[in-house]
């Protein structure tokens, strides 16, 4: 059989903290194997070597916050056979989407000495609002084993096995007692997508929603429970939904329902 060309991998960054692409370098045990299976053709955080596109797989980190980036993402899409977004910024607009709830000019003038230099869009938006995305990998940050799963699925021409159910299932599987029922700690687990491995509940802490909304979450019911049984006030309910996935629709609507 003729030797197949190694697929070309590119990693792109938009507005983000770099943590999700760092997850690839954090795959200490797998990194050299990954480098053996794909041609890391464009990954500036790790290499000076840039191989020209097109690329077989592009991993895109970060959200769109400037007009320049809104154009750049189209170039990236045109150069990419498969485009996978990684992390809350790319899949939901990220924490910088907190600006979306305010007039961005208020933010600018609140903080910056020379607002005329600030060049930014009113909203921070996920990549899928701009171009077609083949797969979205959630998390703030992503789980590196889920990233490896996405890469292996790509290499083997299959669908990534990434569950979309709630975090509660992970707690149950790990045998972690429900922090909300047993300790009265507010937890976003019932409406948050699984993927992290239920880290927070295993550390006696409520989930704070890094992986964004699960498929069809019942946020209304959870908010009511928080309010009635755990005595959480409206402002804190809004704060809870407004973190790293604030602009993902179910969380956005859930927060707006309690905003005065």
């Amino acid at each position: 059989m003729a030797k197949k060309r190694k697929p070309k991998l590119a990693v792109w960054k938009f507005a983000s903290c770099d943590g999700c692409q760092l997850s690839l370098l954090d795959c200490e045990d797998e990194l050299l194997a990954v480098a053996g299976a794909v041609d890391i053709a464009n990954f500036p955080e790790a290499s000076r070597r840039i191989v020209k596109g097109p690329y077989d797989l592009s991993l895109v980190e970060g959200s769109i916050t400037t007009s320049h980036d809104a154009e750049r993402i189209h170039k990236v899409r045109r150069m990419s056979k498969f485009l996978v977004t990684i992390g809350s910024c790319a899949t939901g607009g990220g924490i910088q989407a907190l600006r979306n709830f305010k007039d961005v000019n208020t933010f600018v003038s609140q903080v910056y000495a020379n607002p005329e230099y600030i060049e930014t869009l009113n909203k921070s938006t996920p990549i899928a609002d701009h171009v077609f995305v083949d797969f979205e990998l959630r998390g703030c940050p992503i789980n590196k084993y889920q990233l490896i799963e996405v890469l292996s699925a790509f290499l083997n021409d299959r669908k990534p096995n990434i569950p979309t159910h709630s975090l509660c299932i992970e707690c149950k599987r790990r045998g972690i007692p429900c922090v909300m029922v047993s300790s009265g700690i507010p937890c976003l687990g019932p409406v948050t997508q699984a993927g992290c491995g239920a880290i927070c509940p295993s550390y006696n802490r409520g989930c704070y929603g890094c992986f964004g909304p699960q498929e069809t979450p019942n946020t209304g019911s959870l908010s009511e429970w928080w309010q009635q049984k755990l005595d959480v006030n409206d402002v804190d309910i809004v704060r809870a939904y407004r973190t790293f996935n604030a602009y993902a629709e179910p969380f956005r609507k859930a927060s707006e329902a309690y905003e005065k």
Partner: peptide, 28 residues
């Protein structure tokens, strides 16, 4: 790098939220 406005949206948050929010400034 595009601006991300952390100082602005820290306003109005609880003091206990600062470690979780500011961590997101840098993944490294």
């Amino acid at each position: 790098e595009p601006p991300r406005f952390f100082e602005a949206f820290l306003r109005g948050r609880r003091f206990t939220e600062a470690p979780d929010i500011t961590a997101r400034i840098c993944g490294i």
